[in-house]
Design a protein around this nucleic acid. Structure first.
Length: 747
DNA sequence: GACCTGCTGCGGCGTG
């Protein structure tokens, strides 16, 4: 054991060191060496390193050392995880360490038996591994016990911190931790965040301790990766010969033959992940690849994995990847990006560019984990071939260009910072209800201080808080009411919501049918995507015919079938970051060919660049098209959306598609004129723009908000009104003095 | 033009 570096190891307690010996470790990992002194010193710490670098032990070895001489009533460490599956993994991982240290270890989530939880609650001690929702339930149902349970808490560990940053669940977790500190009469309890490496770790620090990020210590492990082999491959999707076949192709999409053949060639015989982009595509690709296995008379090795499949079906695929020697490719959505242990895979393939560089980075981390083996990533960019009905946007091959841009961003070491916190009024409604339930009743000024001044809802001032309470108390909502003494109490409708177990999560979920074959539930299907008796669908990697739709029980009964079309799932797209789209413009304007493109992709990039300069986009931002104009702001989704609304506010027929704004019945000179006016004027009224955005409620309690409050949420979370003048100024063509020249009319 | 995550308490019944 002399090879152990003295620094970190020597500072650990006797039982912790004993456990390390027993593991046969010859040294501590880089991130562990760095985390030990930081965590022993006390205070908040973010520990960041790539997946499987030993972050869990980096936190728990020093934390258990800290606890060695303390024996107190109540829980000592609270570990919070976004996934139940992760809690189960970590429980197995920490069991023997805790046993050696004489520390109790409790699993606490929805699948854990109620008796085990109530036992832990009655004699609280040791470490609790819990989800934010179970923690919320504990506060709401046992508000009076918080002091007894958490009064002597030594530290809170937040796993996968990056998964919480800027999200509804992240706001809820920050609020819960704050509520625990206050109810337990503690000024602050040390927080340890475990995170994948992010572009800028200051965001992680601020997410760990809102308002106090600068005092958080950052511990970053060095990347122990083995390098990367990456390729972007180009494909053409043939154009249907007429409108009728185009409609048919939309109804029954097909994987282009060349794509299917290449995927089969690269993936079969090994263990891989194929990220297909959407649940529909997952089913489509899994079905196509299964078909190729059948044709080749091989046993199937391609299995779908997405959030609407039953837990059993998903676990089967995970288990097969992790432990079965047979070759296995999981065709997945983001379900397999983080968390669950699936061992190492040889290659990662992806259909299309995806939506963020951060996610691309996570996917890469899934391969190349065996010693000496690099990560392998192949991106399949599928573009529409030239022909009937070609749109100028098709000629720019934007999927391919976006794929290239994202790889370039990744190579620069950049990835998206978490989105700046919005108002999160839906989550605040939830937290107001939760605090009332926890305390039995609270005065409005105290609630504001707790949630908004000390807690994470910093953007909500007293006035806005009062507005929100009025809306919650309104005759149509009746979520809360005020007692004669001025205490906020739960209202009639609030009671109904809070009594259900569906209350604890803060995110919205769709109502769904269960798809059942014989006695087995295959998964769930959204209520709003109608399926009819006799229809055939592809689901869970098989083809089925619908035998019965029971709308009351919300069950769809199916039997095996020969044919089927992929299922339909509705979903709203996420926002693409400015930097990606700005990089796309640079890629189109440049003449360098990236070395990681295959031959077809290289040709497609040349075509796209020729179209880019041919249409005048190198110098102009607006081009004539049909009876209208296409505007290319080369900016992210929020700016694109804001600009579109600004055009609509000026009575233009405007919509955004791809990365452009399409305007009908106008000429470029009129658009340039308007852009000049926008550039010179102060930003428009955000509320007026927000009111034009027709949208269903997005967050769980958005439906209770007034039009005005919903408008405020939209302005803060979905638009960038302040950026409009500068954006309009950038869009002014250097040639805009000569508005009537033919330059802009050649498209 | 997308994805994912989560869940108490109680009454009733069967089993050892």
């Amino acid at each position: 054991m002399t090879s152990l570096p003295p620094s970190g190891f020597d500072r650990l307690s006797e039982p912790v060191r004993k456990w390390i010996w027993r593991q046969g470790w010859t040294s501590l990992r880089d991130v562990q060496e760095k985390a030990i002194p930081a965590i022993l010193a006390g205070g908040d710490v973010v520990v960041s390193a790539r997946t499987a670098a030993g972050k869990t032990e980096a936190a728990f070895l020093p934390l258990l050392t800290r606890l060695a001489e303390r024996q107190t009533d109540g829980f000592s460490i609270l570990y919070v995880s976004p996934l139940k599956a992760l809690i189960n993994d970590q429980f197995r991982r920490l069991e023997s360490l805790c046993e050696t240290c004489g520390m109790l270890l409790h699993k606490w989530h929805g699948d854990v038996a109620a008796t085990a939880k109530s036992k832990a609650r009655k004699r609280p001690s040791g470490i609790v591994l819990i989800t934010p929702e179970s923690l919320e339930a504990l506060l709401v149902r046992r508000g009076g016990e918080v002091l007894r349970l958490f009064g002597n808490l030594d530290a809170v560990v937040i796993d996968e911190l990056h998964a919480f940053i800027g999200t509804e669940r992240g706001m809820q977790l920050q609020s819960i931790l704050n509520r625990i500190e206050v109810a337990a009469g503690r000024d602050r309890v040390d927080r340890i965040g475990l995170s994948a490496t992010l572009g800028d770790m200051r965001f992680a620090a601020e997410a760990l301790r809102p308002g106090g990020g600068t005092s958080v210590r950052l511990v970053e492990g060095i990347d122990e990766g083995n390098g990367l082999r990456l390729q972007i491959r180009g494909y053409l999707r043939p154009v249907p010969p007429d409108e009728e076949e185009e409609a048919e192709a939309k109804e029954r999409p097909q994987v282009p033959e060349a794509v299917a053949a290449d995927l089969f060639r690269f993936l079969r015989g090994r263990s891989n992940l194929l990220f297909a982009g959407s649940r529909t595509n997952v089913e489509l690709y899994a079905d196509a690849l299964r078909g190729l296995c059948e044709t080749a008379q091989l046993p199937n090795e391609f299995f779908p994995h997405h959030g609407n499949l039953s837990k059993a079906a998903r676990e089967e695929v995970e288990l097969r990847l992790r432990e079965d020697p047979r070759p296995t490719t999981a065709v997945a959505t983001t379900t397999l990006e983080l968390g669950v242990d699936i061992g190492d895979v040889e290659t990662v393939a992806q259909i299309g560019p995806g939506f963020s560089v951060a996610s691309l980075r996570q996917r890469l981390g899934r391969s190349g984990r065996r010693a000496g083996k690099p990560a392998v990533l192949r991106i399949f960019a599928i573009e529409r071939a030239a022909g009937r009905g070609q749109h100028p946007l098709d000629r720019l091959h934007l999927d391919l260009v976006q794929s290239i841009a994202m790889v370039e961003c990744l190579a620069d070491g950049w990835c998206e910072p978490p989105r700046p916190a919005g108002l999160h009024l839906s989550t605040l409604i939830h937290q107001i209800l939760a605090v009332i339930l926890q305390t039995g009743g609270i005065r409005p000024p105290i609630a504001w201080k707790l949630l908004c001044e000390r807690g994470p809802f910093r953007m909500i001032d007293r006035g806005l808080f009062a507005d929100l309470l009025r809306v919650m108390a309104s005759a149509e909502n009746r979520l809360v009411e005020q007692s004669p003494e001025g205490l906020l109490m739960i209202g009639e409708a609030g009671e109904k919501i809070a009594e259900s177990h569906e209350f604890y999560p803060v995110f919205a979920t769709e109502r769904e049918y269960r798809i059942v074959h014989e006695t087995r539930t295959l998964g769930t299907y959204p209520l709003d995507s109608t399926v009819a008796y006799g229809e055939t669908i592809i689901f869970a990697g098989r083809r089925w015919q619908v035998m019965e739709v029971d709308d009351r029980a919300r069950v769809i009964i199916v039997r095996s079938a020969k044919a089927g079309k992929p299922p339909y799932f509705s979903g709203v797209g996420g926002d693409i970051h400015d930097r990606i789209v700005e990089t796309m413009r640079k890629v189109l304007a440049s003449h360098d060919t990236p070395p990681y493109l295959d031959k077809i992709a290289t040709g497609l990039l040349e075509e796209a660049r020729a179209a880019f300069s041919g249409m005048g986009l190198a110098s102009d931002s607006c081009i004539a098209f049909g009876n209208g104009v296409l505007v290319f702001p080369w900016a992210g989704t929020k700016k694109l959306r804001t600009l579109t609304l600004a055009f609509q506010a000026r009575e233009f027929k405007a919509g955004h598609f791809g990365h452009a704004v399409e305007l009908q019945d106008c000429r470029p000179d009129a658009v340039y004129e308007l852009l000049a006016a926008m550039a010179a004027a102060p930003p428009p009224d955000g509320m007026a723009l927000a009111m034009r955005l027709v949208q269903p409620p997005l967050a769980k309690f958005d439906g209770f908000l007034s039009r005005e409050l919903m408008g405020l949420v939209t302005v803060s979370e979905r638009l960038e009104v302040g950026a409009l003048p500068l954006l309009a100024q950038k869009l002014q063509s250097p040639l805009s003095v000569d508005l009537n020249s033919s330059v802009r009319d050649r498209a």
